[in-house]
């Protein structure tokens, strides 16, 4: 009975989405819980005291290693001593390039408080990133509030982000607007059969269904394709009477 209870409890607990950020090279969570013997040798060999063994009451399987980037991030050691220390393979020694570690994924989770999203220039998370300009970039977009400035939005790219937590650690706000989450919580997944037309077209060196006729766009006939800017005082060509659009268009079914 006791064993059954323990087994069920264990199965239930490991079925919860893991919120812990594991050390570099950690196996997928389910395999990790089967492989890690909770010895703490990885913890001992981390020179920055990043890693901790969870205690009963932490929301992480008791005794397993994890870290909180906001407190002490992973410094992405070149020689990855934590992985070398692990005797069981719960931290996979296939990982030899720390840049390939995927401990979690940074997500700019609060766009209402991030200073850059407010149109200011903070950039701290971007500047501290060890994989700067690859894992995190500043994307320039028009600031609709002032209508004359740019916003430089910190944008994380899953292809390069290691989940080290340096960005979360350094966010200047009292509560970080950028946070590292386990991939399970941070990422969606496209359906297998989805194809992006523009990617396919690039790969094939041309449209797969023949070049398409570009239809003229009313009011933009004299512009280059893609140019939708409206000059001050611009009046559309007047050979057709200008009708109001949207709900005032007068169109009836």
């Amino acid at each position: 009975m006791l064993a059954l209870g323990v087994g069920l409890y264990g199965a239930e607990a490991s079925a919860r989405p893991a919120e812990a950020i594991r050390p570099p090279g950690a196996l997928p969570e389910q395999d990790f819980l089967a492989a890690c013997v909770r010895c703490g040798l990885c913890v001992r060999d981390c020179p920055f005291d990043t890693l901790k063994l969870s205690e009963l009451g932490d929301n992480v399987a008791t005794g397993t290693p994890f870290f909180e980037g906001r407190k002490v991030p992973c410094e992405m050691c070149d020689d990855i001593p934590c992985v070398k220390a692990c005797p069981t393979g719960a931290l996979d020694r296939e990982l030899t390039d720390i840049g390939k570690a995927r401990m979690g994924l940074a997500v700019l989770i609060d766009q209402e408080t991030c200073l850059n999203f407010l149109g200011l220039r903070c950039d701290v998370c971007y500047r501290v990133c060890p994989v700067i300009d690859k894992a995190i970039t500043l994307e320039l977009v028009h600031n609709p509030r002032s209508d004359r400035h740019a916003m430089l939005l910190p944008t994380v790219h899953s292809e390069h982000c290691t989940g080290c937590g340096k960005c979360e650690h350094s966010c200047v706000l009292p509560e970080a607007a950028i946070k590292v989450l386990p991939h399970k919580l941070a990422q969606g997944k496209s359906a297998e059969h989805y194809r992006k037309g523009w990617v396919e077209r690039e790969a094939a060196g041309g449209s797969l269904i023949g070049e398409q006729h570009q239809l003229p766009m009313r009011g933009l006939e004299d512009r280059k394709y893609g140019d939708t800017r409206v000059a001050p005082g611009y009046v559309p060509p007047s050979d057709a009477p200008v009708k109001p659009g949207g709900i005032d268009s007068g169109w009836k079914p």
């Binding site: 323990v6 087994g7 264990g10 199965a11 703490g40 063994l53 969870s54 205690e55 399987a61 005794g63």
Partner: peptide
């Protein structure tokens, strides 16, 4: 139970490792 749940089952409760690890790494509860 380890085979069925795919995790080291007894470590969810094992007082031996809880005590030893607790003394060395910190107890929690």
């Amino acid at each position: 139970a380890s085979a069925l749940t795919g995790s080291i089952a007894w470590e969810w409760v094992n007082p031996v490792s809880m005590l030893h690890r607790g003394l060395i790494f910190g107890f929690g509860l």
